[in-house]
Structures are given as structure tokens and as C-alpha cells.
Design a protein around this nucleic acid. Structure first.
Lengths: 146, 146
DNA sequence: CGGAATACTTGACTCGTTCAAGAAAAGAGG
DNA sequence: CCTCTTTTCTTGAACGAGTCAAGTATTCCG
């Protein structure tokens, strides 16, 4: 994924190619699962004049176009990632909020066939694994052994 | 689940039995998946003097004690339900936000065994099904056929 | 019934996100 | 290359769920 790929991605989605948009995409390539604030900070390293509203707009437009995916684990602000279309899932650390990708355990569309959905037409099954990340596990063990 | 059950539940969790707490529990019995605002409104029907902060505190205490479960689908405010400990899941309507319960499709702990969790110690797998509820499906079909 | 601990009220405040209006830039067509 | 229309960005204010803090009231143990 280099800049010309990003450009094609944008044009393919009928979106204009702008410096803020390229900067947001580059930032997400470097920092998957970044929240809006982090994206804004990263963007401003290369494009200091970009407004926070522009980042919200860009992330919204990219999400609507399907170029990025928005996730929002309970208790967290919105986070974004470039990896789309492969129905992967996420592990979230209860302690520090860190997010990591998890591939599908059961198959291509795990758990998508719910037993009884009360007449809902289901189009996506999102799995969130909750637990403790390696760093927080270590910290906790170390602390309790003192 | 009557009031004396609620009372035993609270005492069993080392929580004092108070009018606001009973009112919150009754409200959740009547309206599963209610958000804080709805709970507050329902509580005030019977207990007009209860503050919004009290409802936040009560819901927090009940959640910490494991008496209620907090869910928060992306884009929604926090919602609460009395049904705990059975690892059931939820369908959420993309259009109106309505939530319904879904029992486990695969077994008791579906998808809990993620293939590769990057060293995370996973203790829960939360599944959120996204789709369209019956009411919104009907509305959409009707509108487009005009 | 009295006293310590817990729970609630009040009111201010934070922060992620959205709204609105006008200025700037992209890119199609000439 | 230039102009015009549309989209995108800037600026600045506002919203709302949730939290913080200090003081008052309630629960319930002994």
C-alpha cells in the first residue's frame, strides 16, 4: 500500500484525492486501531494545518466508502483500521484498551448463523474477545508477587 | 423475579438495599437493553427524587457486582440488562438501534477459542450481530415499492 | 437506638463528537 | 491553461453521555 494505491482507492470510491485524506490513510497504515485523536496527531506531523473536523469528515467518508473500518469496543472511543473486507475480529485488553487483530476461528463467517434472530435480517457477525494483553498480564503478575 | 428476589440479590452481593436500586432493577426487568436515560425516566415514575448521578452509580455498582450486564454496541450509548451469566449475544438493528437477545449458536462458548490471540489471555467472546429489525425491514420495503 | 460506612443529591465539568457557515481546493469541460 | 461547479476543509460554537467532587442522607450492624 503506497501513496498511488491510496490514490486509486480514493478515485475508485469517487472521492477526491486530497492531502488530508492521503495523510489519514498513511497514518492508519502505520497505526492500525488508532482513534481519532491519534490520527489527528499523526496527520499533523506531515500536514500541520489540518483541522480536527477534517479528520472526522475524512474518517467518516472513508468509512462510508468502505475503505476503512470503524470499530468501537465498549468503553472506547472510535478506532479505525485499513484492513477491510476479510471479516476479522479483535481482542481488546480490559486493562489498557489495546486492540489486536484475530483471524476467524471457525471459518470464513463464524457464528454468522445465529439460532434465533427474532426476525432480524443479519448481515454481519462481529466478535470481540475480551481479556488481558501480554504487557498488562506481566505487570499484574509482577505487582502481585511483591 | 420479584422485589424480594432483588433484595436477596443485592444482599448476596454485599450491597445495601435502597429504593433507587430496587427501582433500577424493576425498570430493567420491564425494559431489557434500556439505556441510562430510559432507566432514569422509568425510575422517576416511582421515585421522582432520584438523581441522574444515582442511576449512574447504581448501574455501575450492579454491573461491578455482576447483577446486571452492560452492553454498548458501536454508535450506541451504554445499555443494561438483567440477564447475566449465560453468555448470550445480541442482534442490533443498524437503522433504529433496537437490540434483541440471541442465544449461542455454536454451543456454550462459541468462538471463544480464537486461533491466534497475540498472547492475550481471553476470558470472554462477545458476539454482536448487525442487521435490520423486522419493523425497519418492513418500512424500507414499503417505501421502495411506492 | 447510636454511629460508622455506604449511598444519594447537587452542580459543575470533561471530552468525543457533531453542527453550521463560509473559504479553499479539486477536477471536469472548454 | 483557465473557469466554474462541486466537494472538501477551516473555524468556532454547541451538544450530550458520562464523570468528579463535596456535602447530606440513609442503611444497617452492634
Amino acid at each position: 500500500m503506497d501513496d498511488s494505491d491510496f490514490e486509486h482507492l480514493l478515485r475508485g470510491a469517487d472521492l477526491r484525492v486530497t492531502r488530508p485524506r492521503l495523510a489519514v490513510l498513511r497514518s492508519l497504515r502505520r497505526h492500525p486501531h488508532a482513534d481519532t485523536g491519534s490520527v489527528l496527531a499523526a496527520v499533523r506531523v506531515e500536514e500541520p494545518a489540518v483541522s480536527h473536523q477534517a479528520v472526522y469528515d475524512v474518517l467518516g467518508a472513508l468509512t462510508d466508502a468502505g475503505l476503512v473500518r470503524r470499530i468501537q469496543p465498549a468503553g472506547s472511543v472510535a478506532r479505525y483500521e485499513l484492513r477491510v473486507g476479510d471479516n476479522h475480529h479483535h481482542v481488546v485488553c480490559r486493562s489498557c484498551g489495546t486492540v489486536a487483530d484475530v483471524d476467524c476461528a471457525v471459518g470464513v463467517r463464524p457464528c454468522l448463523d445465529a439460532s434465533e434472530t427474532h426476525g432480524f435480517v443479519v448481515d454481519e457477525a462481529e466478535v470481540t474477545y475480551w481479556g488481558t494483553c501480554p504487557a498488562c498480564s506481566t505487570a499484574r503478575t509482577t505487582a502481585s508477587s511483591n
